[in-house]
Design a protein around this nucleic acid. Structure first.
Lengths: 237, 237
DNA sequence: TGTACATCAGTGAACGCGCGTTCACTGATGTAC
DNA sequence: TGTACATCAGTGAACGCGCGTTCACTGATGTAC
């Protein structure tokens, strides 16, 4: 039952348009490897696709808009990878879920270093990320928050000796307090933020080359450091 | 007693040359804020100094060389800030030294975000850092290693319950094993690497904007998270 | 089913700007006798 | 102390390249009657 706005038969033109738009974004994504975000060029994308540079403006309104799409796609791809890994673990295996999430993040980042750099590296000069990037950016944190919430439900608070959180720190984390269920204590919230910080700190160090001549086997060291972080979180005894 | 190579009287030309070279490097450093490393331009530097673009080649052999100087200077400035803060703390106050180092790193990074991004952000595409950057890059790690070594001398190993380090991890950290005194156990070495990773992970998150709408008072939260890391290190009970 | 019109894709030229680097040259500064 | 020569700083033009974006235009595809 086709509505007036959405005809049942999608015209060939529309299909081709969607496909070409995808090709443009994917070509741009591949070109990130050459010159990074700052070097992203509509003309280079057009050239690779065999079209004249002005033609891409039929599909993408500007260079900055293309960059925004790439950022959103990177966050989404990373989030999807983490979700796909986590969903396969039994809900009550909190340590398993944590390990699945963090391994997926590292795996994706190592496999897509330039897209990772786009979102977790230096901010692109002169570019201001619009609101649309917020949602995709929170997919990984949302997974971690869910693990913490389930830990509380499973008796985390009774099992773990609390570390006190000073008033100044409680005030400092006020903006994010609302993103956590109220049962998550300030102590656990801080541990969660630290695990999040550590995860991306470790991945960034590896992807950006700061572990060259320091750590040989990135995966082995990552598993070990993350096990220690899981202990800090109280997911592992 | 002037040697043959180094005459006692330094010619005006030589002095002016050194001064202008400094001005070029400092102008370039300031311009990092505008376009980042990828946008660094010899022509823009020349323009700001009121000279013709070809003239800067009397002082700097190429754009990449200028970039290398900026990277070295950034590492050196960060290292100097950390050293200056740490040297004022009594040698036996290990926690105080750790806190001084980490606060200095954060303070410098927050005050110089673009220089920080130059060395700890995304690698500059198409640029390969030469060997000369290694020394300056290790000044902060060297301070941290010294704290760990002194901790061992002060009885750390007897005081702290050891966490076992799997064989694969011991192999993974082989490259850096030689940078630590042999008294530093593998367990402590791993903790040290993790503290180092966490320090720059936290600073990068803050400087690169990933704590927007998450943490309000960066300094207060940083002090708290670093206190917890100090506990993990066994510097604080 | 056929025709008239509107919509869209893609072209090619242009605007106005940027860049790194080289090179022949002028004129000033420093050095050796 | 004065002169001759060598060294260096800075100029201006040029090479050859890149970029984002706009605009008038052609020709193909889709839509409504």
């Amino acid at each position: 039952m086709p509505s007036v706005e959405q005809p049942a038969h999608v015209s060939a033109r529309t299909r081709v348009r969607a496909e070409l738009t995808r090709e443009i974004v994917e070509t741009a994504r591949r070109q990130l490897a050459v010159g990074g975000a700052a070097g992203l060029s509509l003309r280079a994308v057009a050239r690779e696709l065999g079209m004249v540079s002005s033609a891409v403006y039929r599909y993408v309104p500007s260079r900055d808009d293309l960059l925004t799409r790439l950022i959103i796609e990177a966050y989404d791809a990373l989030g999807a990878a983490a979700e796909a890994a986590e969903v396969g673990v039994p809900r009550d295996d909190l340590l398993g879920r944590f390990r699945a999430i963090t391994r997926a993040v590292r795996g994706w980042a190592v496999a897509h270093p330039h897209e990772y750099a786009l979102v977790y590296g230096s901010p692109v000069p002169g570019y201001r990320a619009p609101e649309d990037t917020i949602g995709p950016a929170t997919r990984v944190p949302a997974l971690l928050i869910a693990v913490l919430a389930d830990a509380v439900a499973a008796g985390w608070t009774e099992r773990t000796p609390a570390v006190s959180v000073p008033k100044a720190v409680r005030r400092a984390i006020a903006p994010v307090r609302g993103s956590f269920p109220p049962q998550v204590t300030d102590d656990l919230l801080v541990r969660g933020l630290m695990a999040w910080t550590y995860l991306f700190g470790a991945v960034s160090f590896e992807v950006f080359g700061h572990r060259h001549n320091v750590v040989d086997d990135g995966a082995a060291f990552f598993d070990h450091e993350m096990a220690r972080i899981a202990t800090m979180l109280g997911l592992l005894t």
